[in-house]
Design a protein around this nucleic acid. Structure first.
Length: 1072
DNA sequence: ACTAAAAGCGCC
DNA sequence: AAAGGGCGCTTTTAGT
C-alpha cells in the first residue's frame, strides 16, 4: 500500500485509526498494489509504525506480507453492525491495518475516481480542496463500505455453514484446506468469528502456518526461566540472570521445527486400513539406528502394543476397564496443529497419538505393557472414542504430566475426562518448589534427575528411565550451504515423524507415559516421606496434602480454564480506536517539540528505549562504569517512512538512518537501569515532566482557557526538565512535551499488552471466551495465568480505557467478583500472632487509618477527643460526617501507614522507603520503628523466619507447604538479602494462596451453587470471579462470601476474621 | 531468520 | 554492599 498525495508524493503522518475523524483536513489516497493474493477481498497493507507514521511498505521486506506469522495477527470479523473491516497486526512494532480491497483500491491513473475517501483520515492534514474535487464523499463511501462488508460477511457465513454441515456428515477430519488454497501469502485473510472452532476435530481454517515456526509437540509444562543473580544499581533492583529455561535448555534451543504444523487429519476414511496395515504389519523393520539413544529407545518397542484398529482398541479398552481397572494408568498425548506458545488448547490442537502405561504387571498382548494408539491417519477419531469408557470412568485412576493440556485436547473430541489421580508436575512442585533454577519441571528434566527418580520402582528398562527429548531423537543439524553442519537443529513436524519414523516415534511417545508413571511412583514415595504440618498440627504426609488439596485443585483449575471468560470484542475494538487516536495526538505533540532541538526526532520511534535515551541523555556517563558514556549523537535505522532517497541511490530504500543528538541541555536523572544507563521508564520521564498536563499546545496559543489553566499551575508542579530548559516558557513546554511522551508510552503499553491481544483468536476458543491457562507454578504457591495473563488486566484507577469492561457475563448471566480485604495482612497477623493487628482487624473499619492511629500518638488523641473520625459510612449522598475523617486530616500519616502495611510484609527496608518517600534514611527508619513499636510480634516472627531460612534452608506456609532456598549456600550478600526477604514474604504470600485455594475448593464443592449453575471463572490471588444466572446472583453471592469467609471445610482456622467483599455485575469493571 | 538479552510495565 | 515479595508479556536491539 502506498500512501500518496494528489501530486503523487509520499506523505507522512497519516494515522491508522482516524477512520472517522471529526475534523478531517486532508485526505490520503491509497494506491492498491496489484495483488496475487488468493484473498482478493483484502487490500494490501496499510501500515503504520509504532510512532504512528504511515509509510509505504512497497519494498520493505520487514513488513512484506510474506514474513508475517499469522499468529501475530489479531482479526476482527467484518460484521454487519461494525462494518470496519480492519485487520491489524503488529510486526516489529508496526501496526498494520488491512482494509477491504474493494474499498481501499484506487485507480492509479485516475486516483480520484475510485478511492473511497474515508479509508484513512488525518485530522491535521485533511485537504478540503481535495475533498471537493472528488466525486465521492465520506458518507457515501461509508455506505458502500457497509454494503460491501455485509455482502462479504454473508458469503463467509454461508461458506462456513456449508463447511460445518460437511463436517457433521464426515465423522472425522476434513479435506486439507491448506494454506495454499486459503488466505493471502501473509495468512491474513478474512476470518469471521464463526469460522473458528466450528468443529472440534476440524482443521482450523483461520490460521495458516507461514514459517513453520511453531512448536508442534505440545508439552507446555515448560516455561521461561526466571531467577538468578541479583544486581542492583543506584537504588534499583534488577533480576539479571539467565537460568535454565527448561524449554530452551532441553528442547528448543537452536531447534527449528520444520515445516507446517498446521496440517491436520486427512479425510480418506478408506485409507484407514491400508495405512495402518502398511505401517505395522510386521514386514517393516526399524530403520538403521546408530546412536545409543536410538538403540535404547528402540528397545521400548518390545513393550508397546500398537493399536490402530477398532478391534484392537476394544480389546485393550476391555482390559483397561475390567482386569486392570484398579491399576494406576499414566497417560500422555501427542498433539499437532497447535502453537503452544500462543494458543490455548481449548478448542485447538489435534491428537495424533496417545499412550497409556499401567506398569509392567499389565499385559495387553504378548506380554506388552504399554498401549500406544495411532489416531493420526484415517479412523483416528473413532479409535479415540473407543477409549472414552476408559477416560470417562471416574473410578479408573489416571496420572498425567501437565493434566491441563491433555485434558483440554482430549475434551476437544467430546470426551469428558474423569478419574484424575495425579499431575506429576504439581507433585514435583509440591515436593520441591525450587526446581525452576534446578532443571525445571518438564517431564524430561524431572525424569532424568536421579534425585527425583530414585524412588521409582525398578523396571526392566532401568537404564531407559527418563524421557528423551525430541531434539535428541529426531533433531538433525541443518546443513549449511557448504555442506557443513550448522548450529540450528531441525525437527520435522510431529505428523511427519509419526508417518516417516513410525517405530522411533512410537517409542518416543510411549516413553512419555512410561516415564510419567515412574515419576509418579517416585514422587508419591517422596511425598509420603515428608511430614505435613498444617497450621501447627501434624496431619500426616505431604502426599495426603496432595490428595486433599492439590489433586482436587488441579482438577478444578482445568474446569476454570475450560469455562473461560467471555470478552466483548466489539467494545475492545471501540476503545482501540480511541486509544490509538489519543496516542497519535500525544505522539505528534512530543515529536513536534523534540524536532525543534533535533530535527530527526520527527521521525524517531518513541517506542524505542534506545532512541529516547539518546535524545534525553546523550553524553551521560554510565553509572556503573564511568569509562563508558552515551555518545553525543547516534544514528538509528528507521523505516524509510518518507521514502527519502539517500545520496547515490536511485530509489528510496527500505530503511534509512536518522541521527539523534541530545536535546542540547543536560538532563539530570537519578534513575538508572541495571546496566548503568539512564532509565527512560515512565517513572524517570515523569520526574522530568512533573505533574503537568500533556494537553499543552505550544504551537498556537489560541486556546485561552488552556493557557490560563497553565498559568495557574504552580512552578513546582513542573519536573526537572523545567529547570534544565531554563525555567521559562521553554522549560514549561519541555515538561508538557515529556508528559505527552509518557502518555504515548502508557497508551502503547495498554494497547499492545491488553487491547490488541485480547481480540486475538488464538487465545479464545469458540463462543468468544478466553481460556487462559492457570498454573500452579510459583515458588510461593500462588497461581499464575498465561496465554493470556488475565491476572494483570489494568485495575480500576489506572484503567483509563476501562479494559475490564470488556470482560462480561453471557446474556442472562451475571458475574460475581469477590475478593478478600487485606488478606495478606490478616495472614501476617495470624502467623505472627500480633495482638495489635488482630485487634485492629477485630475492630473493623479502615485498617490503614487504624494503623496510623496506633503509630502516632497525636492522631490517637485526636480520635479520642473525637476531633476526627476513623471512618464514615454516608447513608445518603448529602450525608456528611460531622468531623473530618482521619484519612483527610492526617492524610500523609495514613499514607505512610498504608505503605508500611504493604511494604513490611514484603521485607522492604528503610532505605527503599526513604527513596520512595524522598526523606532521609534516618527519618524512614524512625517511621518503620514506629510501625514495629506496636507490632513487636511481627518483628520477632520475621526474625524467626530469617533464621529458619538460614539454618534449615526453608520456610513453610499455613497449610504446610515448604519453600526451600537451595541457593543459600555460597550466596552473595545481596543474594542472601533477597532470600531473607523471600523467607519473610513466602509464608505470608503462600498462606494467602492456601486460603484462596481452599476458598475456591469450598466454592466448587458447594452443592447449592452448583444447582444454581454458578461456575468459577478466574482467580486473581485474593479475588475470585464466578459466572451464573443473573436471577440467582444475590443468593449465590451470599454463598460465595460464606465459602470465602470459612474456607477450611466450612470453618475458619485463622485467629483473624476473613473479610470478603463481593459484588454482582454484568462486567468485571462494574463489579469492583 | 532466529534468538536472547535488556528494559519496561501490568497485576496482587 | 545493597536495600520489597510473587508473576507474564511485549518490544527493541544485538548477536549468530
Amino acid at each position: 500500500m502506498v500512501v500518496t498525495t494528489p501530486s503523487g508524493q509520499f506523505k507522512t503522518s497519516c494515522p491508522s485509526s482516524f477512520f472517522f475523524s471529526s475534523q478531517p483536513r486532508r485526505l490520503f489516497r491509497a494506491k492498491m498494489a496489484s495483488s496475487s493474493s488468493p484473498c482478493a477481498s483484502l487490500s494490501r497493507n496499510f501500515s503504520s509504525r509504532r510512532n504512528l507514521h504511515f509509510h509505504p511498505s512497497r519494498n520493505d521486506p520487514s513488513i512484506s506480507t510474506t514474513n508475517i506469522s499469522s499468529s501475530n495477527l489479531f482479526r476482527r470479523p467484518v460484521s454487519i453492525e461494525d462494518p470496519l473491516p480492519v485487520i491489524c497486526k503488529r510486526v516489529r512494532g508496526y501496526l498494520w491495518v488491512h482494509c477491504l480491497a474493494s474499498v481501499a483500491s484506487v485507480n492509479q491513473s485516475n486516483p480520484t475516481s475510485s478511492l473511497p475517501p474515508l479509508l484513512i483520515y488525518n485530522p491535521d492534514n485533511f485537504d478540503y480542496e481535495d475533498r471537493k474535487n472528488t466525486s465521492t464523499n465520506p458518507e457515501h463511501s461509508l455506505d458502500l463500505w457497509r454494503q460491501e462488508s455485509k455482502r462479504l460477511n454473508q458469503n463467509k457465513l454461508d461458506e462456513n455453514e456449508k463447511r460445518r454441515q460437511l463436517e457433521l456428515k464426515t465423522s472425522h477430519g476434513t479435506e486439507d484446506s491448506n494454506k495454499n488454497s486459503k488466505g493471502s501469502p501473509d495468512g491474513s485473510y478474512y476470518v469471521g468469528q464463526s469460522f473458528s472452532g466450528s468443529s472440534t476435530c476440524s482443521p482450523k481454517l483461520d490460521t495458516v502456518e507461514v514459517n513453520g515456526q511453531s512448536r508442534p509437540i505440545c508439552q507446555p509444562e515448560v516455561q521461561n526461566g526466571r531467577s538468578g543473580e541479583l544486581i542492583s544499581v543506584n537504588g534499583r533492583v534488577n533480576h539479571k540472570w539467565k537460568i535454565n529455561s527448561p524449554l530452551k535448555e532441553n528442547s528448543n534451543k537452536d531447534v527449528h521445527f520444520n515445516g507446517s504444523n498446521r496440517q491436520h487429519l486427512e479425510t480418506a476414511e478408506g485409507n484407514s486400513a491400508s495405512k495402518g496395515g502398511a505401517k505395522f504389519d510386521g514386514t517393516q523393520k526399524p530403520k538403521a539406528i546408530s546412536t545409543g539413544h536410538h538403540k535404547n529407545l528402540s528397545r521400548i518397542y518390545d513393550e508397546v502394543v500398537v493399536v490402530n484398529n477398532i478391534s484392537d482398541a476394544q480389546k485393550v479398552v476391555g482390559l483397561l476397564t475390567t482386569e486392570y481397572r484398579d491399576l494406576v494408568h499414566a497417560c500422555d498425548t501427542e498433539v499437532a496443529s497447535i502453537d503452544v506458545k500462543k494458543e490455548t488448547p481449548v478448542n485447538h490442537g489435534e491428537i495424533i497419538c496417545f499412550s497409556i502405561y499401567s506398569g509392567e504387571t499389565a499385559d495387553y498382548g504378548n506380554g506388552k505393557s504399554c498401549i500406544w494408539v495411532d489416531v493420526l491417519d484415517g479412523g483416528g477419531r473413532e479409535l479415540l472414542m473407543e477409549f472414552a469408557p476408559f477416560f470417562e470412568d471416574s473410578s479408573i485412576k489416571k496420572v498425567w504430566h501437565n493434566y491441563s493440556f491433555d485434558s483440554h485436547v482430549i475434551e476437544n473430541y467430546g470426551i469428558k475426562i474423569s478419574g484424575f489421580h495425579a499431575d506429576t508436575m504439581h507433585m514435583a512442585r509440591l515436593w520441591d518448589s525450587a526446581r525452576r533454577t534446578e532443571g525445571g519441571y518438564s517431564l524430561e528434566a524431572l525424569t532424568s534427575d536421579s534425585r527425583v527418580m530414585n524412588e521409582a520402582q525398578s523396571c526392566r528398562n532401568r537404564e531407559l528411565i527418563g524421557k528423551i527429548s525430541m531434539k535428541t531423537i529426531f533433531g538433525k543439524k541443518k546443513l549449511k550451504r557448504d555442506g557443513s553442519e550448522g548450529k540450528l537443529t531441525i525437527i520435522p513436524p510431529v505428523e511427519e515423524l509419526q508417518r516417516e519414523e513410525p517405530i522411533l516415534w512410537t517409542c518416543y511417545s510411549a516413553l512419555d507415559s512410561m516415564s510419567t508413571l515412574q515419576l509418579f511412583e517416585s514422587l508419591q514415595k517422596k511425598l509420603e516421606k515428608m511430614e505435613w504440618i498444617s497450621n501447627g498440627k501434624l496431619e500426616g504426609s505431604m502426599f495426603k496434602f496432595y490428595e486433599k488439596y492439590w489433586r482436587p485443585f488441579g482438577e478444578l483449575l482445568v474446569k476454570l480454564e475450560t469455562e473461560g471468560m467471555l470478552v466483548n470484542c466489539a467494545y475492545l475494538a471501540e476503545i482501540q480506536k480511541v486509544a490509538t487516536r489519543e496516542q497519535q495526538i500525544a505522539a505528534d505533540r512530543f515529536r513536534k517539540w523534540a524536532a525543534r532541538y533535533c530535527p530527526d526526532a520527527m521521525h524517531m520511534n518513541v517506542g524505542s528505549d534506545a532512541q529516547l535515551r539518546q535524545l534525553f541523555f546523550g553524553g551521560t556517563l554510565n553509572s556503573n562504569d564511568p569509562n563508558e558514556a552515551l555518545p553525543l549523537s547516534r544514528s538509528f535505522k528507521v523505516p524509510n517512512t518518507d521514502n527519502v532517497i539517500e545520496e547515490g541511490k536511485k530509489d528510496p530504500s527500505k530503511f534509512r538512518n536518522i541521527t539523534l543528538c541530545s536535546l542540547g541541555v543536560t538532563m539530570e536523572t537519578e534513575i538508572y537501569t541495571a546496566s548503568g544507563w539512564p532509565s527512560v521508564s515512565g517513572d524517570a520521564l515523569k520526574t522530568l515532566a512533573g505533574k503537568v498536563s500533556s494537553e499543552y499546545d505550544w504551537t498556537d496559543d489560541e486556546d485561552i482557557s488552556t493557557d490560563q489553566k497553565i498559568k495557574k499551575e504552580v512552578d513546582d508542579s513542573y519536573g526537572t526538565a523545567y529547570e534544565a530548559f531554563g525555567r521559562e516558557k521553554e522549560g514549561k513546554e519541555a515538561c508538557h512535551a515529556i508528559a505527552a511522551l509518557c502518555e504515548v508510552c502508557s497508551i502503547d503499553s495498554l494497547l499492545s499488552n491488553f487491547i490488541l491481544p485480547l481480540q486475538s483468536n488464538n487465545i479464545s476458543g469458540k463462543n468468544g471466551r478466553i481460556h487462559c491457562s492457570l498454573n500452579i507454578n510459583t515458588e510461593t504457591g500462588r497461581l499464575s495465568a498465561r496465554r493470556p495473563n488475565l491476572q494483570n488486566q489494568p485495575a480500576l484507577e489506572k484503567d483509563r480505557y476501562k479494559i475490564r469492561q470488556a470482560f462480561i457475563a453471557a446474556p442472562g448471566n451475571s458475574l460475581i467478583v469477590a475478593d478478600y480485604g487485606q488478606l495478606e495482612l490478616r495472614i501476617l497477623a495470624h502467623l505472627a500472632n500480633c495482638r495489635s493487628m488482630k485487634d485492629a482487624f477485630k475492630a473493623g473499619g479502615d485498617f490503614h487509618s487504624r494503623t496510623a492511629m496506633n503509630m502516632y500518638s497525636h492522631i490517637r488523641e485526636a480520635v479520642e477527643k473525637q476531633e476526627v473520625l476513623l471512618e464514615w459510612h454516608p447513608q445518603s449522598s448529602d450525608d456528611k460526617s460531622p468531623v473530618p475523617l482521619l484519612k483527610d486530616a492526617f492524610g500523609s500519616e495514613r499514607r505512610k501507614a498504608k505503605m508500611l502495611n504493604f511494604s513490611i510484609a514484603y521485607g522492604k527496608t528503610p532505605v527503599g522507603l526513604a527513596r520512595d518517600w524522598k526523606v532521609s534514611v534516618k527519618e524512614a527508619k524512625a517511621t518503620v520503628n514506629l510501625w514495629y513499636s506496636d507490632r513487636k510480634e511481627v518483628l520477632y516472627w520475621q526474625k524467626e523466619r530469617k533464621e529458619e531460612a538460614n539454618t534449615i534452608g526453608s520456610v513453610k506456609t499455613l497449610l504446610g507447604r515448604t519453600r526451600s532456598f537451595p541457593s543459600l549456600r555460597g550466596a552473595s550478600n545481596s543474594h542472601k538479602g533477597h532470600i531473607e526477604r523471600a523467607a519473610i514474604n513466602t509464608p505470608v504470600q503462600g498462606s494467602a494462596a492456601d486460603v484462596a485455594m481452599c476458598a475456591m475448593l469450598e466454592i466448587s464443592k458447594n452443592a447449592r451453587l452448583r444447582e444454581l449453575g454458578w461456575k468459577l471463572l478466574l482467580q486473581v490471588h485474593d479475588e475470585v470471579i464466578l459466572e451464573g444466572p443473573a436471577e440467582s446472583a444475590e443468593v449465590a453471592k451470599a454463598i460465595v462470601v460464606e465459602c470465602m469467609s470459612k474456607p477450611f471445610d466450612g470453618t475458619n482456622i485463622l485467629s483473624v476474621d476473613l473479610a470478603v467483599d463481593a459484588k454482582c455485575a454484568q462486567n468485571w469493571y462494574a463489579a469492583k
